[in-house]
Design a protein around this nucleic acid. Structure first.
Length: 1075
RNA sequence: GCCUUGGUGGCGGAACUGGUAGACGCGCUGGAUUCAAAAUCCAGUGUCUUCGGACGUGUGGGUUCGAUUCCCACCCAAGGUACCA
């Protein structure tokens, strides 16, 4: 009976689905274990072999925990809002809802036939259902399956994962995003009390305002929040009160400097920008002021930092988050601007101990005081400089950090201690967005200040004892001893910082302060395919839709682009107004007349002084009628922005615990039982995005008393990338150039290049590069070169003619390359028609391609599809092989050839269970089994899945050699294997006579007694180098071992008459003879 | 520049708290089986060698009876981050 993996795998996948084997239920009698994967964005191009790596690992762990008796929650879903579906919609008009559904469900039925709803009347297949849109196909085409989207679900199912699909969630499903909107409302109705260090209800804040005003409130709020008394509060109009409350809410509207990406027509968060361009598409990003929803994540900066100490996450990931939050300890210091009366410049410094070394101050060019303090004489220069910096893009400024630029404002500040005047400069090395946008410049202690001072000829006073600072700033805190600094003289760094802060506080010029790099997160996106905000505007002020009327569903639109007036795509909707009487979405035309957006009232600007605010959300910011107004009919414009991609992923892990609950985000029973994620597996690219935002929301939910713990994932593992083995052909790139003499001058012409495609085999290319001999590049080509050169050289006006050759590597599809790196030229030509006339220069009759490890991607033609691997070797082989490839967290290259190793292991395993009747096990077999149990259990607990696979191989090799057919061995063994290769395990389990699934069979118990040995092969080493081994009984003591070893003939031979100086005996381990 | 992770055969990778470096698999070589191929099975496979052995875990030092493992300095690669005051 041979191993028919196809039949076996289909059979058990069906069994698991039919019997709902992996359905998780709250079960108070069993200990819970929650294993979570980062849910995927279902893209149309499907999975490649790299994608399932983490899912396989988590599945193994989940299955292992079931064998260990845990009640395991192992859910899966889709992060299904996102840009690709929207861009596809813009191109084709297909509704993102439909393409998303097809990407998940696929468009085939169980038998592989295309579903009728994806077939057009003419028999063609609707484009959304195609992988390759360039090839229209019909159902009659034999190979249509190659062009059809198979669907994420089907691709996942074929790998035999033990997901509880009854808990599936999709972020774009209104039943799910209802709760994303709900959390948004909770955040809106909350403020952060710094005294209690938690989020509290906004109603409580209003009570405080009514009682005491805001002067006694210690809260996370906007910088520009004015002070007011209880009396003031009572006199404020409703609108004014709402404006003030917005400055405290955990999600708030503000006109912020945002990263605007014109090409994508949307703003981007900091973590969506890489090297100054958009992460998606690489488009330029500019700074722009826009009114946007923001998340007050900065309120949680310290707790996000502290929480990292309590969770078992990878060090690099924790470091990335710490870095991103960027806490620095220091002091804020205020400097009075001389002759200005009461203007002050506030700076943040981490080195208050160096305050006596301040010889100038530098403001960011955008600093608000710049126009106010600049003297008439310096005005022209300063304005020119400010104008020049504004023109430079963020990217230019980043790229060019070496050039020192700046301008003197003509103004002076007063040193808080010495009262000396300090010149105030502006310079773009000071960033407006960090700290206060101003620094006290201490050139002796900071290299940037030093460079600036030297460049502009400013004094460099020295305040360090015994250090020369004329050439370079001195920043070594540990070696610092302060001098020339009045009361700080002679003190170390630590002491002088303390003392300086104390003195500053005494004179009211500063205080100890902690500064964070973390900024509040922009939460608005000018896109269609995202969660709508549950927000409408009355009188320009945002109002929340009542929870009972959620979800607010995405409206239908004609097109998915911004409107002609520059509004976000939702501006195209004609039914997008909120009727506050009927609590439903109604047509825009019903909006209260005065609430309609007009050109004059588009800004929310009563508290927003800046004139440059872009009305990107003009309808959203329209003036609604005042409450109780006579003309109000209660219909108001809805918000036109949608939420960013991370909104839906910030609480999904909790929703899985109770995914169908329509009354609550989740029941308290469910959250109290399942608590938190025990193991979370996913990519490290989410370090400063999803993994930070979700921790923030979890802490908020914790403050609200909705979740029992404030960190949601105890352990996190970043799976490494599986890279592809790209293959290249090398195209000859020829340039012939000649130097022309016209009697007076010489100039170089690039006369011609070779237009034909000639590809040189790798060996020939290397030989050419070594020898520069044209014969390695083929007769035709070298003939061409010779001919061109001699033609040129025969011309009188040519002074010199020569050529350059280099080789352009071009990716070839790895399916055209065999395991010996030979190119199958015919398949290459048929896949790439543009090269159908290309010529190939072979070596030994073959074309050898170049290989390089690269990220797997379609554009690199190096993608390996798991479907193909499953067809040829089966899911169990694929699962084992992905684990066998190397450590989970490491990145490693895929090499399909190697899979035969694990595949033949499975065949050997199968044979072991089909080779004879039950016998009593031999002691050797028991030993083999128990050392396997021990090792496998240790390895799984350490997530060392690659070594487990080797252990299985060793075990099966040994049992085969022992001709073991004993049930007492084979039954525990198949349980060990089951998490890794579940299909074959179920089949063999059934073969052993079981009628129930193996999935909850109890994990075998390791028993030491089978491993006890009576003797040991002692390695005998001389000066640490092992030379031979001697078998000795284990019960010998040191003395006996030493005697036995010294008496051995090979020892005498090795010593060659010398007397050993020393003999180290470690019983049970080693003997080392020195001398 | 800074932070993090890593560097072991032709390749992927093993090696527990310092104790026989190269497990396991791929590839390669030879053999068996076969009309032949595939599949399967057996043997070998770090380098050099005067066949005694010598040398070998990025480089150079150190600690130790003994170092891939611990310490110091440096080199290289990958990822993150950057005028962060």
């Amino acid at each position: 009976m041979h191993y028919d993996f196809e039949k076996t795998e289909k059979k058990w996948q069906k069994y698991w689905a039919d019997h709902k084997t992996f359905r998780a239920e709250t079960n108070l009698d069993k200990e819970k274990f929650y294993v979570l994967d980062m849910f995927p964005y279902p893209s149309g191009s499907g999975l490649h072999v790299g994608h399932p790596l983490g899912y396989i690992a988590s599945d193994i762990y989940a299955r292992y925990k079931r064998h260990k008796g845990f009640n395991v929650l192992h859910p899966m879903g889709y992060d299904s809002f996102g840009l690709p579906a929207e861009q596809y919609a813009i191109q084709t008009g297909q509704h993102p809802k439909n393409t998303t559904e097809i990407n998940i469900e696929g468009c085939l039925d169980d038998k592989g036939n295309i579903l009728p709803k994806y077939v057009n009347d003419d028999g063609g297949i609707k484009t959304a259902a195609l992988i390759d849109k360039s090839k229209p196909v019909t159902v009659e085409d034999a190979d249509y399956r190659d062009h059809i989207i198979k669907g994420y679900r089907r691709q996942l199912d074929q790998l035999g994962f033990s997901f509880d699909w009854s808990r599936e969630i999709r972020t774009s499903d209104p039943k799910y995003y209802k709760w994303t909107q709900w959390i948004f409302i909770q955040l809106f109705n909350a403020w952060y009390n710094t005294d209690s260090d938690r989020a509290e209800d906004i109603k409580d804040l209003i009570s405080i305002f009514e009682r005491d005003g805001n002067t006694s409130v210690n809260a996370a709020c906007d910088e520009d929040t004015p002070d007011f008394s209880a009396g003031d509060w009572k006199t404020f109009a409703s609108q004014k009160k709402q404006e003030i409350l917005l400055k405290y809410r955990l999600t708030y509207l503000a006109d912020a400097e945002v990263n605007w990406c014109p090409a994508l027509g949307t703003v981007l968060a900091n973590d969506e920008i890489v090297n100054g361009v958009s992460e998606r598409g690489g488009h330029p990003v500019v700074r722009k002021k826009m009114t946007q929803w923001m998340m007050r994540i900065t309120a949680y900066a310290q707790r996000l930092l502290d929480g990292l100490d309590t969770i078992d996450w990878p060090q690099p990931l924790k470091d990335a988050q710490r870095n991103w939050i960027g806490r620095s300890e220091g002091a804020s210091v205020t400097f009075r601007v001389l002759g200005s009366g009461s203007m002050f410049i506030e700076v943040f410094t981490t080195r208050p101990d160096t305050i006596f070394g301040t010889s100038f101050m530098t403001l960011a060019p955008e600093h608000e005081l710049v126009p106010k303090i600049t003297t008439p004489g310096q005005k022209a220069e300063v304005e020119a400089y400010v104008a020049a910096t504004t023109k430079r893009s963020e990217r230019d400024r980043m790229a060019d950090v070496k050039t020192i630029t700046g301008a003197f404002t003509g103004a002076y500040a007063e040193h808080p201690f010495t009262q000396e005047p300090i010149p105030i400069w502006i310079g773009d090395y000071v960033l407006a967005g960090y700290g206060t946008g101003a620094v006290m410049s201490v050139p002796c202690g900071d290299q940037r200040d030093h460079d600036f001072a030297r460049h502009f000829g400013i004094d460099i006073p020295n305040i360090f004892e015994g250090i020369d600072v004329s050439e370079e700033a001195f920043a070594d805190k540990e070696k610092t001893i302060i001098a020339n600094s009045d009361f700080l003289n002679g003190l170390s760094y630590r002491k002088s910082v303390k003392k300086a802060i104390a003195e500053l506080e005494k004179i009211g010029h500063g205080e100890g302060k902690i500064n964070y790099r973390l900024r509040d997160a922009v939460f608005s996106r000018q896109r269609y395919w995202g969660e709508p905000f549950p927000v409408y505007y009355v009188d320009g002020m945002p109002q929340m839709i009542e929870e009972a009327y959620l979800p607010l569903r995405l409206p239908e639109v004609d097109k998915y682009l911004p409107t002609e007036t520059g509004e976000p795509p939702l501006g195209n909707a004609t039914e997008w107004a909120w009727d506050t009487n009927r609590n439903e979405v109604v047509a825009n035309k019903k909006i209260t007349p005065s609430a309609r957006p007009t050109d004059e009232n588009v800004t929310l600007s009563t508290h927003l002084p800046d004139k440059n605010v872009t009305p990107s959300t003009s309808a959203a910011l329209g003036t609604g009628s005042v409450e109780g107004s006579l003309e109000s009919n209660g219909v108001y414009p809805l918000e036109l922005n949608t939420m960013p991609g991370w909104a839906g992923s910030s609480q999904y892990f909790n929703r899985y615990m109770d995914p169908d609950n329509d009354d609550k985000i989740f029941s308290q029973e469910a959250i109290n039982y399942w608590q938190d994620v025990d193991l979370y597996i996913g990519g490290s690219e989410h370090a400063t995005g999803h993994l930070l935002y979700s921790r923030f929301w979890q802490k908020f939910m914790f403050d609200k008393g909705l979740v029992p713990v404030d960190e949601y994932a105890r352990k996190l593992i970043n799976q490494g990338m599986i890279t592809g083995m790209s293959a290249f052909v090398f195209k000859i790139n020829l340039v012939i150039h000649s130097v022309v003499a016209d009697g007076v001058n010489y100039h170089t012409n690039h006369d011609s290049s070779f237009e034909e495609n000639v590809f040189v085999s790798k060996g020939n290319m290397e030989k050419y590069l070594e020898t520069h001999d044209l014969m390695f590049l083929g007769d035709k080509f070298s003939g061409y070169v010779q001919h061109e050169l001699s033609t040129l050289r025969n011309q009188d006006y040519i002074y010199r003619a020569d050529y350059d050759i280099d080789f352009l590597p071009i990716h070839v599809d790895i399916s055209c390359v065999n395991s010996s790196n030979n190119l199958v030229i015919e398949s290459f030509k048929s896949l790439r028609p543009e090269f159908k006339d290309a010529e190939f220069i072979l070596e030994n009759g073959k074309y050898i391609v170049g290989r390089e490890v690269e990220k797997m991607s379609k554009s690199k033609y190096n993608v390996v599809n798991p479907d193909d691997i499953c067809d040829e070797y089966g899911a169990d082989s694929l699962r084992l092989y992905e684990m066998f490839l190397g450590p989970l967290e490491q990145s490693k290259p895929w090499n399909t050839a190697g899979i035969t190793g694990v595949h033949s292991f499975l065949k050997k395993l199968w044979k072991l269970y089909h080779s004879g009747p039950d016998h009593k096990p031999s002691p050797e077999s028991l030993k083999t089994l128990h050392k396997t149990i021990k090792k496998v259990e240790e390895d799984i607990e350490n997530f060392s899945f690659n070594t487990t696979v080797s252990t299985f191989m060793i075990c099966v090799n040994e049992l085969t050699a022992q001709k073991c057919t004993s049930r007492e061995i084979l039954e525990p063994l198949v349980i060990l294997v089951s998490p890794y290769a579940p299909h074959i395990a179920e089949e063999l389990w059934e073969k052993l006579g079981h009628t129930e699934s193996i999935s909850t069979a109890s994990f075998p118990k390791f028993e030491e007694k089978y491993l006890v040995e009576s003797s040991k092969e002692y390695p005998i080493s001389f000066n640490g180098k092992t030379r031979f081994t001697i078998e000795l009984p284990l019960d010998m003591d040191k003395q006996q071992i030493e005697e036995a070893v010294l008496a051995h003939e090979r020892t005498q031979q090795q010593l060659d008459g010398r007397t050993p100086k020393k003999i180290i005996v470690v019983p049970g381990k080693i003997v080392n003879i020195v001398g």
